[in-house]
């Protein structure tokens, strides 16, 4: 798959298909945070559709803030953010339909089993029960045996795996992954790499926040550093640079 320069026009597409020249995520003058120094101090960013971009930076740099903002869970103090042309504030519902998030926390109900959590997520995302292969998803993330156990009894790695399964429920064209490698064992981290590689092949746009720079180098097309409330491109990685 080739990635040419991206056209600088308002892009409003629905799916990953034929989206190579689209801008999937666009930030303009984006500010977040109140009182004192803002967490994000005016970001201008275009992420082309189908790109895998790793956000790198120290704790508190604003990676999670940016991902939550794109996931419509935070509102910019100033500036705009759009996902496939839809404003994260004014058209939040449209954005939500196009975004799947992997939160840094588990995000599942402890009193329900892994399987029940997936069914709930599917139903609330408006998916018909017959199109969702819950057993298959559990198998994919290695939770087949723990599927009927309550999430309360899960380890943090298992919670992460369940969150990954939830990510795979939908065919959202944009993935927002917050520390996907954290809490996972070698196996789990390899699973994340595989899922991201699959997502790239399917043309999804992936924004991935991670401390693990070497690991991100292996999966991302570009690495952007978030520091001091600003963005800086660390590396554009071609097809060959990835192993």
């Amino acid at each position: 798959m080739t990635r040419a320069a991206f056209a600088d026009g308002a892009a409003r597409g629905d799916g990953p298909a034929g989206a190579e020249h689209e801008v999937a995520i666009r930030l303009r003058g984006l500010v977040q945070g109140y009182g004192g120094a803002p967490v994000l101090a005016g970001l201008d960013l275009d992420v082309g559709a189908g790109r895998v971009v790793a956000l790198h930076g120290p704790n508190g740099a604003g990676k999670t803030t940016l991902l939550r903002l794109l996931g419509t869970r935070l509102r910019p103090a100033a500036g705009t953010a759009t996902v496939h042309g839809f404003d994260v504030v004014r058209e939040a519902h449209e954005v939500r339909a196009r975004v799947a998030s992997l939160p840094v926390f588990g995000g599942a109900y402890g009193a329900l089993s892994g399987r029940e959590n997936l069914r709930l997520a599917a139903a609330l995302r408006g998916l018909a029960p017959e199109v969702v292969d819950v057993a298959g998803l559990l198998d994919r993330v290695g939770l087949t045996r723990a599927g009927d156990h309550l999430v309360r009894a899960y380890s943090s790695g298992m919670r992460k795996r369940l969150a990954l399964a939830r990510l795979l429920l939908t065919d959202a064209p944009v993935w927002l992954l917050d520390e996907p490698y954290a809490a996972l064992d070698e196996d789990g981290q390899a699973l994340v790499d595989t899922l991201v590689a699959d997502a790239r092949r399917e043309g999804r746009t992936v924004l991935l926040a991670s401390h693990d720079l070497p690991r991100s180098r292996g999966t991302a097309d570009a690495i952007v550093e978030v520091a001091g409330g600003r963005l800086r491109v660390v590396a554009h990685l071609g097809e060959g640079a990835r192993s």
Partner: peptide, 18 residues
Amino acid sequence: ARTRGAVRTVAPEGVVRV
């Protein structure tokens, strides 16, 4: 004004495109 004051309005590196 406090929020604005803490923000550099013009990004020195322009729009980051990835």
